[in-house]
Write a protein that binds this DNA or RNA. Structure first.
Lengths: 212, 212, 212, 212
DNA sequence: CATGAATGAGCGTTCATTCAT
DNA sequence: GATGAATGAACGCTCATTCAT
């Protein structure tokens, strides 16, 4: 249907530029919306904000889930990167840990879809972005542990779960009771310090209590 | 309307037996489903599981919201009651607090709709059941504080937020990493002990960090 | 289940009294509601107002339609009767006619279900009550015709249709423009007077005009 | 967003052809169904008849009400237009008036939803289409009045109410007694002529008669 | 390739009618 | 008989996904 002949060399480049621009617009818009409203948003809203049609959106991301994952991957990456940077800049390992949580909770914890997924991800850590974040935390953990500031036995998973946990607290209180989560963070960080005698339970210390 | 002499007692009881059974079946099924899937479930699913028709369900609960509230009220009540009991049975105030969290997290934290609502409720505590729970926590807080075991400055809201926060951790880890939250609980409880020098921040101690 | 023996003679009378009372209560309540809201009302509303259960209502009137018909029959009867009386009391045939419309439009035209059905009934005059009304109109028509006051060729059906037609006008204007229909009545009655030269069309005088 | 050189005209036309066809199919089907059954129809029925899915229907008309209004607006417009044309073509003001009613009652009076709304509209004239119709009637009224053919004191509202009133008569008799309303129209028109001595009542001439 | 219109299963809710008590 | 709880088909509407242009 197209005339095909004249544009020989750049033939495949032109559409691609457009396609890439579109893809980026979609991801950008989606990131915005997902941060604001979580993964339950109407796909139409994303298409609207990115200025592309539904078809384009679905060409790039055949399932809503694909788009969500892409955005999350990206945002987890960025997050991990900025976290790593902040950690490097920090004076000492403990400050690095503290700063990490502060930044995370002040920033990304407001990203609804990020938090929704950070949660899911402990179960099935399929998202590579999250892996980056995990690596950062691993480093923070290792360093704080090595200097003897971190309570012995605390694992990366503990710190990750604490992040998810406090992240949720942020989401809940952010609008009605801003920074109330800050106190919880202090408490938790104090609980993470080395000056506690008792070792942490090995996941199943306490006797069972019946379910509802 | 009729003069109706002797049958006073058994007058209106008979037909209700069935209705009550149904109502209970509905609430029971709803509680189950709400615990499993949260408040977003299809009403038809509840009807199906309880073995009643849609009409019956809507006769008892004119709006889906009514049913949800009823279930939540009930479950919050039960929860508060069992929490209170456990607290009373505890040897000392600190054990009471510990046990409370243990029980709460082992039991009700798995209830999706409960947690959803517990979250919402920090903003607008409309459900009366939740108030009961809050009262229990208030007592636990007061007692633990009075004995000097609880870190000064810790409020009921802090404990409540910790509950929500850890509750979320439970929901996340329960299936894939059972009792991993247990370690987080220990950490948090240690952070709550009185032997910490620094006072808690008054909600906005730390300098702002920019959002993503 | 009942003790069966002692009440021999009056055995079948007692329940009937109750049944009749119930039936009457139902009809009464239904009449009220139907007049207010038309035949589209929820059957529950009728049951509620009459103080009986749904079962009772449906025992007496297996279909909603049955109840509606019963009420309409009754109300058409009453209407016919009061119309006849008013006609008899009138000084002259023309006054009788005028009074009839006045009374009808001031009174029964506000009865929503009556008007709904008066309409339907020109098609299939199944309701006996309406027949009574029709007879009254027939008399009015005959008398007014005989005295030469009524325009020749005007039939009972014409007068009936005028009634339906104006009745509808009443329903529409009653709340927002009370008695606006009164002017229409005057116009129509003047058009019914004998002093018009042209005969009425035989149902199909005018050339067809295309439908929408 | 692209620079898009030569294809200016055919740019956005192509995809719309289908959409417009669908939209028209929906409106057409809706008009049909609304005319037949009134505004209470099931939206699915409209979708079915127009051959589109529910989604398509709701894309074009987000609320059922929107569709209904669109249809009514359209049909009132058409009606007003054809009425105006017929009035213009008429030999004299009285013929114009006569023709108007003839045409209205032969055509649009069969449209159930139109009549339902024409009725409602005397109370709250919200639909713009209806306003057009009103204007036409106003002109007819003014012209007939000016030539001294119309009975003094007759207002646009009177003529409108007569229209609604007779329209209802049409709906009732159309199927079982076609054109029976024609006689009523003659009567009413005769009543509207100037050769009546008595002035019309100012809305509340006649003494009240008690309600049923 | 982009577009956005089309699809249809599914949701919360209502109401005439039936049936166990 | 009387009661009112139970039934389920239908209604207005939404949204992830597909498909013609």
């Amino acid at each position: 249907m197209a005339v095909a002949e004249p544009r020989t060399t750049t033939r495949r480049r032109t559409p691609r530029v457009d396609a890439i621009r579109n893809r980026e617009a979609i991801v950008e818009a989606a990131a915005e919306v997902l941060a604001e409203q979580g993964a339950a948003v109407d796909v139409r809203e994303i298409a609207r904000r990115s200025g592309v049609g539904m078809g384009t959106l679905y060409r790039h991301f055949p399932k809503k889930e694909d788009l969500v994952h892409t955005v999350l991957r990206r945002d987890f990456m960025t997050w991990a990167e900025s976290a790593r940077q902040a950690a490097i800049d920090a004076e000492d390992p403990w400050a690095a840990l503290t700063t990490f949580y502060q930044q995370a909770l002040t920033g990304y914890a407001r990203h609804r879809a990020i938090m929704e997924n950070l949660a899911l991800t402990l179960a099935e850590p399929d998202l590579e972005g999250i892996h980056q974040l995990r690596l950062v935390i691993e480093q923070l953990c290792a360093r704080a542990c090595a200097t003897g500031l971190l309570r012995p036995g605390v694992t990366t998973d503990d710190l990750l779960l604490l992040l998810v946990s406090l992240g949720h607290a942020v989401q809940i209180t952010d609008e009605c009771r801003p920074r109330m989560w800050n106190r919880l963070l202090h408490i938790s960080l104090d609980g993470l310090r080395a000056d506690h005698r008792e070792p942490l339970p090995c996941d199943s210390t306490v006797a069972g209590v019946s379910a509802p």
